[in-house]
Design a binder for these strands. Structure first.
Lengths: 255, 255
DNA sequence: GAGTGGTCTAGACCACCAT
DNA sequence: TGGTGGTCTAGACCACTCA
């Protein structure tokens, strides 16, 4: 038959929808403005609700929309630039009030973290358990009342020799005590990695997201005295955060 | 009625599924092994295919699974650590064969990039167009034949004054020429940001993914002579890449 | 051509938030 | 209590890969 194929390789509907809605966001909507609900939007575009949701999910992933159950879908503000630079060799949170210590436990860290912590602990000496227990400090990072990240900072006891382990020290106070002692160590370097993950239930709750929400997982190894003095696993909200590594230093400051 | 509520707040089925399958991956499967197809898995777990797919999507997002249309679902290898460190003040790809120049065009860059390029171009002098045209160099980064990232490197003409603009220079050759000239500039610093994005159609094709696939967008501003000499926008496959910022430097090398 | 994952539908019910 | 987004179902068809 001589029917000419107008769209030989048609793009998926949800992809086209995403483009259309994305353009509408630029031209017709303002930050914070509420969109029509999903059922109406689906009807308006003549698609099933599931298809519309696929488009909205993409836009939310890109940080352009914010959806909250029971409330609605709103236009998200531009992503917040969050400094996670490694240029200044400082302990995390030093001279920076954006981190807040929340709790501290001594539950054994996950196997992956243990590998990082004990990689250089097993070789030099014979004993392995010298650095136990490992303090697990829980911290939150926020700006303008908005939760950005939840962190689990693992500190082996060997890194905080001066810590008084008084039993009366409860969670938050113990957390601050561990941090205070940690800052006394000379920080010699750090290496860091960033990868995509999905929020565990506890992280999700503190980040005001649903479990499984996309997060940027920043893993940092802090080095002091040739050893791994601490390991931090921080999960940043991927929808609202843009991680910045301001490496410019002197040049930027001079201008 | 006296029916006791066994699960007062039951977690979503797909979340539970994800956990179960994830544990199975650890204990019963090997990297590269192929899973039963989605219809069978859904039947085996007694859920709809869409629900099963929600769990698989999460596992793929976390880099634990790899799905390919027409082929099947396989167990993914651990993520590749990709160095994107800013510690060495070098131009991208110098002394590193993982980047390969593909093409070069002079199409105007997107507005967001233009803002970065011309921020310090408008103030000092009166003229603005001094740095036009802007070369858009296209490069790919790969290891072991596996595409990791696609980059768009924007270089204002002002940054490569020695470039001979012969019309016979085709795309790839022009790209290499621009890079060669760029490397002659003294690199004074760079700042960088990482955020979550979804792959544009062209990036997706070169990364062997579907459009919309999650990517880590690394934006870098290269500074030379107090100016922004180039801007790079690189999209890394979020499922297979873990970006590493090896800041340890001397200490790590010495050990 | 058989089998895979990708897209899409038209419903239903649930958890949550505001009023 | 009404409205929102979140979950789930049971189908259907399509695009792709490979033998």
């Amino acid at each position: 038959m001589g029917t000419t194929q107008l769209q030989s390789v048609p793009e998926p509907k949800y992809w086209h929808l995403k483009t259309v809605i994305g353009e509408a966001l630029d031209s017709e909507f303002q930050v914070g403005q509420i969109l029509p609900n999903e059922r109406e939007l689906a009807a308006r575009f003549g698609v099933a609700r599931a298809t519309l949701r696929q488009a909205l999910e993409q836009l939310e992933l890109e940080g352009r929309l914010q959806r909250r159950r029971g409330v609605g879908t709103t236009v998200a503000p531009p992503r917040v630039g969050v400094d996670v630079s490694t240029a200044q060799h400082r302990w995390p949170g030093t001279g920076d009030d954006s981190w807040q210590a929340v709790d501290c436990a001594t539950t054994p860290p996950p196997a992956a973290v243990l590998r990082l912590l004990e990689a250089d602990d097993t070789d030099p000496d014979t004993g392995t358990g010298a650095s136990r227990p490992v303090y697990a400090v829980r911290r939150l990072r926020a700006t303008h009342g908005q939760a950005l990240a939840a962190e689990q900072l693992y500190v082996p006891a060997a890194s905080v020799p001066g810590l008084v382990t008084d039993e009366s020290l409860t969670g938050p106070a113990l957390a601050r005590g561990v941090l205070r002692e940690l800052e006394r160590l000379p920080l010699e370097g750090q290496d860091r990695s960033v990868e995509l993950g999905s929020a565990r239930a506890d992280d999700a709750k503190e980040l005001d997201r649903l479990p499984g929400a996309p997060v940027l997982v920043v893993t940092t190894r802090y080095l002091s005295g040739g050893r791994t003095a601490a390991v931090s696993v921080a999960t940043y909200r991927a929808d609202t955060c843009r991680l910045t590594f301001g490496d410019v230093g002197d040049l930027q400051i001079a201008s």
